[in-house]
Amino acid sequence: MASSASITGLFSRLSLLSRNTTTTATMTTTTTPRLFSTTSTSLARKAPPPAAGGSAPKAARRSRQAPKSENFFRIRTLRRNMFSPAPPPLRMARLRYLRHWTIHRAWQLFRRKQHEAIEKERSRMHAGMYNACEELRKTVGPGSRGEGYLYRVAMEKKGVYGLEGVPIEYARFQTDSPAKEAWNHDWKR
């Protein structure tokens, strides 16, 4: 509640500021209060003295019919609608809530199975690579090369990083529906 009040205050200030700038453009005699300054002079500024009579401020307000700013309607729409009350929290009857809980638990279970499947897939692929590398490390050759030569070459990271590391054609997203020509079979080098 306090935050919304402060925002409303900000908006009223904003409209006041725009009105003031328009008035200074037309009549340069009026003094504009500097709203957003934190200098010592503005801190020391006193509130304007209350008007003596009851009818005098009313007349002054009526006379201040400044031309509307270009954002007037936009701001009015926002001010009318931005501060609508939050909708009430969900209320559910006992069985309905039980159904909701069941759905929630089923979803959690589903997600868990998905995560575990992904985890398993990754460890399986890693194990495959690990075993292949281990076999390669024990391999002699080719030709007159010694043991583990191919492994050492395979472990080199040349060309892995940098701009040429991954071709730009590979950065294609998966889509919900294929392209009109789903695959370019006639690609020629």
């Binding site: 495959g128 690579m129 395979a154 472990m155 054609e169």
Partner: peptide, 12 residues
């Protein structure tokens, strides 16, 4: 248009 993902063997 192919791309060799790495130099590391993935299967043997």
């Amino acid at each position: 248009n192919t791309w060799l993902v790495g130099r590391v063997p993935v299967a043997h």
